[in-house]
Design a protein around this nucleic acid. Structure first.
Length: 564
DNA sequence: GCAGCCACTTAGTAGCCGGCAT
DNA sequence: ATGCCGGCTACTAAGTGGCTGC
């Protein structure tokens, strides 16, 4: 009986036995040495320990652009003043008169010192952190010792949200054992809190998968300590997710037919639901839950799109009925796309936008809850996000079929095509990244290699010409051999250049595209495992160690002819 | 219906590390 | 030996969507 074939639990039960050591707490704050000062209005001021710690958080970030942002500075200053003593609060009233220079310099020196540590010193540090992983990084869940994903309590600091976050710069407070809820088996050895402390609560709830939790102070959200992605629990959940997406494959034709029909409904909410679903299906948009205003950055998904986020073009670039999308999605990543749509969609959008202001909801009669309720009636387990998984995986499968075949000879060529297929999905899902800081440099380096290669090719051609000439003039067998050798050299040069140019193209195309997110979350790993088997590509070429661990379930059980 | 709570997945990035060219 | 580059990991923010209690 393998790990994957063990008996199932009754519904809602996630484990029978759970034992762990509790979370690991970050070290306490170390006060500044006596020779490092904070200055206010040019004069050194000795801060209380609490105020000093928060000052250090700010000083450490001074190289970052966001410490110059108004919102960040105001939030920081407000929260900093909250931890000051009465006396400090009276004195320190203007952030612009604060000088963190010495603290900043000390921090930079520390970073530099750490960077310059010897191999031996680094090894000592590594071993110490390994010890912590050994002690706190694993739990016992039923029969298995499992790695915990995030067993460390998040250290205090200044909150930096993504995009224009209204809470950026606020103080993220230090978490104490008194804030932490422990979840484990009644009959397990209960984790011991740090000396002199106690847990907020110890509970024994086997209907959830988390081992510990606390509430963070910025958004009031709950943070969880959970298992690593390579655990049995997470693996099974992952498998289930892809099975639901596969099931959509057999329902999707009917669902599409229905939402096209629904676009003609007399009821506005059904029309809106249909058009939203069309976008979610065609463009792999996220559902777009409502967000509390002022709590987070202003981002949207499908159902929360506003009139200002789309522009309708009766004609654009020679195409009819084009919808131009421009909005900030999850993580404030911009979604920009010009999409030709069917006229039914176009007309409905026009209707939805009538008599509305730019800031009004496009789908004012629709919520994600309504949409998901409808979807679950069409197929058990179906929600908006299943469409993303389904369309991502089916796109990978189709692209691999189109771009690759067994007769391709080099692994490099196969892998380039695999990456292209992966990239098609990443573009569909709008998975972007900041261009690497060294991007221009590394492209230039690659170009330099190509240039060198071309020089070598030119030289090789000259030598080949000469060899041919020699062969004509002197009619013996030796020069022919030379000609063949020179021809081979020219061919090698051409191949090398081609390979470099392909690499350059691949890298250029990948400049702002992140492949990892789709690979890890949206692409059924069985598609890739089966492809590797068919193409004779070792699985290591497409999945690194972490990814192989996460997808162990798929690598174990996938047949060569698996179809998503 | 809907607001708040809760549990879980999905997301981009900073910084570390190891391998390779010089 | 050194320094650079690219891949990987750790981190934690930001989503999705179910449930509950009115």
């Amino acid at each position: 009986v393998t790990v994957w074939e063990e008996e199932k639990y009754e519904a809602g039960v996630k484990w029978r036995f759970l034992e762990h050591k509790g979370p690991y707490f970050p070290p306490n704050y170390q006060p500044l040495p006596d020779n490092v000062h904070f200055h206010y209005k040019g004069k050194p001021v000795k801060l209380s320990l609490a105020a000093e710690e928060v000052a250090v958080f700010f000083a450490q970030m001074l190289d970052h652009e966001y410490t110059t942002k108004k919102v960040f500075r105001e939030n920081f200053f407000t929260d900093w003043r909250k931890v000051m003593t009465q006396e400090e609060r009276l004195l320190i009233q203007d952030l612009d008169k604060c000088d963190f220079g010495e603290i900043h310099a000390m921090h930079k020196a520390k970073v530099e010192e750490k960077r310059n540590m010897s191999k031996e010193e680094k090894l000592v540090l590594k071993e110490a952190s390994q010890m912590i992983v050994e002690e706190f990084g694993y739990c016992l869940l039923d029969h298995h010792r499992e790695r915990i994903g995030n067993f460390k309590i998040e250290p205090p600091g200044l909150f930096r949200g993504r995009g224009e976050h209204p809470k950026q710069g606020m103080l993220k407070k230090r978490i104490q054992p008194e804030d932490v809820i422990i979840n484990c088996s009644k009959e397990s050895s209960i984790p011991v809190p740090p000396a002199g402390h106690h847990w907020k609560e110890v509970r024994h709830d086997n209907s959830v998968t988390w081992l510990a939790s606390w509430t963070e102070n910025i958004q009031g959200a709950i943070k969880y300590v959970m298992l690593n992605a390579n655990s049995k629990l997470k693996g099974e959940k992952d498998w289930e997710k892809f099975e639901v997406a596969r099931k959509l494959k057999t329902h999707v034709d009917g669902i599409r037919k229905q939402y096209l029909e629904d676009m003609k409904s007399r009821e506005m909410r059904i029309r809106q639901r249909a058009v939203a679903l069309y976008f979610i299906d065609k463009l792999a948009l996220r559902a777009g839950n409502e967000k509390e205003e002022g709590e987070t950055a202003d981002t949207v998904g499908c159902c929360s799109l506003r009139v200002e986020h789309i522009t309708l073009h009766k004609q654009l670039d020679g195409k009819d009925c084009v919808v131009e999308f421009d909005f900030l999605g999850k993580d404030s990543i911009r979604y920009y796309n010009k999409v030709p749509v069917i006229s039914k969609v176009f007309k409905n959008l026009k209707l939805f936008m009538e008599n509305k202001d730019p800031g009004d909801d496009l789908f004012d009669r629709l919520t994600t809850a309504m949409l998901n309720k409808h979807l679950s009636s069409l197929m058990p387990g179906l929600t908006a996000k299943v469409f993303r998984t389904y369309n991502a995986s089916i796109t990978l499968q189709q692209q691999l079929q189109e771009l690759t075949n067994e007769s391709m000879d080099s692994d490099a060529e196969k892998l380039l095509c695999y990456n292209r297929a992966n990239r098609a999905v990443a573009i569909l899902c709008n998975h972007q990244r900041a261009p690497p800081k060294t991007f221009e440099q590394s492209m230039a380096n690659l170009q330099a290699k190509i240039d060198t290669g071309k020089e070598q090719l030119a030289l090789a051609k000259v030598e080949l010409k000469q060899a041919k000439k020699d062969a004509k003039e002197k009619d013996n067998s030796d020069p022919k051999l030379v000609v063949e050798k020179k021809e081979a050299a020219v061919k090698r040069c051409k191949e090398r250049i081609l390979k470099l140019e392909v690499q350059a193209t691949d890298r250029e195309e990948n400049k702002q595209i992140a492949l990892g997110t789709s690979k890890l979350n949206y692409l059924d790993p069985r598609i890739s495992v089966a492809w590797c088997k068919r193409m004779g590509v070792p699985i290591e070429k497409i999945y690194n160690k972490t990814q192989r661990d996460k997808f162990a379930w798929a690598i174990d059980m996938t047949d060569i002819d698996f179809e998503f």
